[in-house]
């Protein structure tokens, strides 16, 4: 597979390390520090634990279009989000993961703003 790096042009996939589904960019917020004596078995903690479990361990693993993280270890050490077809191996789009993460953040902020 050839990955069309946004900065370096076409590079062989063997220069990269594969991490997995690009949903790994969106790490859920942790409950944060608690003051001593505070109940940690409350609903908020349970919800956070569940979210973290799902984030670390569950995957959609879909057949077809798949957004995924690749690391250019033997190149410029950038993280990329590659949109690839898991049935044909065709690559549709390659972006810098940083750009995707920032776009996700802005999207979340504007969504929050509308509420």
């Amino acid at each position: 597979m050839i990955i069309n790096h946004p900065l370096l042009g076409p590079r062989d996939s063997s220069e990269f390390v594969y991490l997995g589904d690009a949903c790994l960019i969106n790490r859920p917020a942790w409950v944060g520090e608690r003051t001593e004596g505070e109940d940690v078995n409350d609903a908020k903690t349970a919800e956070a634990l569940q979210q973290y479990h799902d984030y670390v361990h569950l995957r959609q693993n879909n057949a077809g279009e798949h957004k995924e993280l690749w690391y250019h270890e033997q190149g410029d050490r950038s993280w990329l989000v590659v949109t690839r077809n898991t049935i044909t191996h065709e690559i549709y789009n390659v972006e810098l993961a940083k750009d995707v993460a920032l776009a996700n953040k802005t999207a979340r902020a504007t969504q929050g703003g509308k509420k």
């Binding site: 997995g20 589904d21 799902d54 361990h57 569950l58 995957r59 959609q60 693993n61 879909n62 057949a63 898991t86």
Partner: peptide, 16 residues
């Protein structure tokens, strides 16, 4: 596995 179980609305701890 993931393809079939997604039809029951499940995400699995599995990658193909």
């Amino acid at each position: 596995s993931s393809r079939v179980m997604s039809q029951a609305g499940m995400n699995l701890p599995i990658e193909s």
